[in-house]
Structures are given as structure tokens and as C-alpha cells.
Amino acid sequence: MTIHAGRARAITMWDFSWLERRWPGAGYEDWDVALAELAERGYDTVRIDAYPHLIDVDPQRTWTLPPLWTQMSWGAQSTIRIQILPQLLDFLRACARHGIGVALSSWFRRDVDDVRMRLDTPQRLAEAWISTLDAIDDAGLLDAIVYVDLCNEFPMPVWSPFVYGTDEAESIGVDHPRIGRWMRESIEIVRAAYPGLDYTFSFSDELDKMVAGDVSAFDLVEPHLWMAGVTDYYDLIGYNYERFDPVGFDNVVARGLEVYRADQSRFDGAILDAIDTIADWSRRVGKPVATTECWSIIDYKDWPGLEWDWVKELNEKAVVHAASTGRWTAIATSNFCGPQFVEMWRDIEYHRRLTDVILSAPIDEDLR
């Protein structure tokens, strides 16, 4: 498969949830059920964590992972034990049964030994990905892969601490020459081993830095875009990405909807303008766009006092706008399109309406 398919893909992010949320009621305990429901909603691609750093050390070890957070609904909210192979291969086979393509990424989850810190050069990052692709290729499943995102939201320290030596460093912008070298060199090494795949690093940075990054080695760009990320919305409601403290979501409950409705045209306009900025960047660099985390609020969940209607409304406006640009070849409807987000997931008609827009989106001639 390839991202350059002459049509847009309806993609969703299942991150590390596909493997870590398999207890009864967590949403992914039966992959065939979850994937059948995904296809029913009109999606044809899923982006997941392949855990390349763990595969590179020992793919069949049972790894112990502390929780990344307790307040968000992605992954597990307590310590969990997982094995990467053969589960990754089994999941790819399940995707194939349901006609779902797979984009590989990694959030580089910390295990109790923190082996991700071994990936302290572009060469070592590339080697971990080559080990992962070798395992997939040996199983005859390479055709299932749509593209490879070498690191989620690079170079944020929470996801790529090996660049800094710690996950508490101040982030370097994607426009920094050192980051450009990391991206270019690691992609070139992986591409030499697997030239038939498409490669990128996903970004979640200030827009001006994002569009100034060196993407010369990329086959596509993957910006993550939210209204809450391109405005002062979170400052106004008092949300600071509290991963282990409920105060952040308490503030979203108390002020989130009120603040949005009070200045809705400004907030809506900001995400639509950001989409236009990315479309212009795509035209300038000649790369297609995939967005798998988007469009309204960054963190949300089923919770007392949290309403989904406004989130869904803004997501729909953004999907329609992105689809109209001719630059997106993979579009998500939000980063809440998974079975653990029950209120969002059960609105099948909503998903079908948006995926119909995505799957019929025009693609500019230079990207076909």
C-alpha cells in the first residue's frame, strides 16, 4: 500500500490502545469486533503504535509499562504487562481481514527499564524500525502498511526523550537544524532497507515552526491540528494537560463549553485558517498531508458534565474544509474515534457522514 493512492483515506488513531486496552469492556479485547465496527463507520486505515524500541530489544518478552496518565482514555491507566510479538502480527492479519490498512507510529512508551533511551542517535532509531519491519516482512504482511511515522509528534520530549537524554527537557522546534538532521538521516537509513514504503515524522508544534521544518526526506507530512492547539482556548479555561490530576478536566467541565460558545467564530476560524496554512505548506513542499489527531479539543472523554455535541460539530467543519483543499490524502474525524470513547463511537451516522466526505475528497493532480 501507499499514501499516494490517488484518493483520500479515512484514518483513525488507535495509538497504543489497540494492545493495552484489552481487558473486558476496554474496547479492544476482540480485534475483529472493533475492526468490523470501524469498517462499518466508513474508515479504511488505522494508525497504531508498533513499539519498535521494544521489538528491537526482545519482541517476545513480556514488558511492564507504567501508566502514561490516569486522566486520559488512551491506553491503560495503571501498570500493564504486554507482549509485542506475535500480537502485532495478529493485529495486522485482523486488519487485512476487514480491509483496513495500517499506518505504523510510536509513542515510545516507557517500560520499567526505560529501554527507549537506547535510541540516542538517528542510526539507532532507524535500526529499531528496521527490526520491526523485518518482523512484519518475515510474516508476509508488509503490504498491509500504508506509511511509517518514525515518531509521534517529534520532537516533543514526552514522546522522544532519547533525543534529549530526558523526558523533562524543553522541546526543540521541528525547524531546528539538529532535528532536521535526525529526521533526514533516520528516514534515509530505513528507506535504504525498505524502499517501497512511505515515511514521515508526525508533528504537533507551533504552526510557524512546523511549516519551516526540513521535510525533504518525507513522503508525506503529518501535522496534528486542533483548535485548542492554535488558540488561547486552554489558557482561558485553565487546562494544562494534567496527566495525573483531575483538576484539568474539572476546569474543562466548568468552563470548556461556555468559553467556546462565547467566542465560537474566532475559535472555529482559527482551526480553519490553520488548515489553510498546512495546505499552502503542502503545495510549497509538494507533499501530501495526513492528519490523524485533530480538530477541536485535544483531550476529552466520556465524563460527567462533558458534552460531545460541540466537539463533533467543530470536527465536522474542519473535516469538510480539509477535504476541500485537495492536499489531504488521509483524514481523521478526531482523535476520539475508538471504542473507548463510547458516546462518540456509537454515533454511527455521524461517522458515516464524515467518512463519506473524506472518501470522496478531491486530490490535487500533483499528489495522484
Score class of each variant (00 low, 15 high):
Met1Ser: 12
Ala5Ser: 15
Ala8Gln: 09
Arg9Cys: 01
Ile11Phe: 05
Ile11Thr: 10
Phe16Asp: 14
Ser17Gln: 04
Ser17Trp: 01
Arg21Cys: 10
Tyr28Phe: 15
Glu29Thr: 14
Asp30Tyr: 07
Ala34Val: 09
Glu40Arg: 04
Gly42Ile: 00
Thr45Lys: 09
Val46Lys: 09
Arg47Met: 11
Tyr51Val: 15
Tyr51Ile: 14
Pro52Lys: 11
Pro52Ile: 05
Ile55Glu: 03
Ile55Asn: 02
Ile55Arg: 05
Arg61Thr: 00
Trp63His: 05
Pro67Tyr: 06
Trp69Cys: 13
Gln71Ile: 04
Trp74Ser: 13
Ala76Thr: 09
Thr79Cys: 11
Arg81Ser: 10
Ile84Val: 15
Ile84Glu: 02
Leu85Asp: 03
Gln87Ala: 13
Leu89Gln: 03
Trp107Arg: 07
Trp107Tyr: 06
Ala126Ile: 05
Asp134Ile: 11
Asp138Ser: 13
Asp138Arg: 15
Leu141Asp: 04
Leu142His: 03
Asp143Met: 00
Tyr147Arg: 00
Tyr147Trp: 11
Asp149Gln: 06
Phe154Ile: 08
Pro157Thr: 06
Pro157Gln: 02
Val158Ala: 13
Phe162Trp: 05
Gly165Tyr: 01
Glu168His: 11
Glu170Pro: 00
Gly173Met: 06
Arg178Lys: 05
Arg181Gly: 12
Trp182Thr: 09
Arg184Gly: 10
Ser186Leu: 11
Ile187Asp: 05
Glu188Ala: 15
Glu188Ile: 11
Val190Asn: 07
Arg191His: 10
Ala192Tyr: 12
Tyr194Asp: 02
Leu197Glu: 04
Leu197Gly: 03
Asp198Pro: 01
Phe201Gly: 01
Asp205Leu: 07
Asp205Lys: 08
Asp205Met: 10
Asp214Phe: 13
Val215Phe: 14
Asp219Pro: 00
Leu220Trp: 07
Glu222Asp: 10
Leu225Arg: 07
Trp226Ser: 08
Gly229Ile: 00
Asn240Val: 05
Tyr241Ser: 15
Val247Tyr: 12
Phe249Val: 03
Asp250Leu: 08
Val252Ala: 11
Val253Glu: 06
Leu257Pro: 00
Glu258Met: 10
Arg261His: 07
Arg261Gln: 14
Asp263Leu: 04
Gln264Ile: 09
Arg266Asp: 02
Arg266Pro: 01
Gly269His: 01
Asp273Asn: 10
Thr277Leu: 12
Ile278Ser: 02
Ala279Gln: 13
Trp281Thr: 07
Ser282Met: 07
Arg284Ser: 08
Arg284Thr: 09
Pro288Ser: 10
Val289Cys: 04
Thr291Phe: 05
Thr292Ser: 12
Glu293Gln: 14
Trp295Ile: 10
Ser296Cys: 14
Ile297Met: 15
Lys301Glu: 07
Pro304Cys: 09
Gly305Lys: 11
Trp308Ala: 12
Trp308His: 14
Trp310Gly: 13
Glu313Asp: 12
Leu314Asp: 12
Asn315Phe: 05
Asn315Thr: 06
Val320Ala: 15
Ala323Asn: 03
Ala323Ser: 12
Thr329Asn: 07
Ala330Val: 02
Ala332Pro: 01
Thr333Gln: 08
Gln340Asn: 14
Gln340Thr: 13
Phe341Glu: 05
Glu343Arg: 15
Glu343Asp: 15
Met344Arg: 07
Arg346Ser: 07
Glu349Ile: 09
His351Gln: 04
Arg353Val: 03
Leu354Tyr: 04
Thr355Asn: 02
Val357Pro: 00
Val357Asp: 00
Leu359Arg: 15
Leu359Asp: 09
Ser360Pro: 01
Ser360Gln: 14
Asp364Ala: 01
Asp364Pro: 02
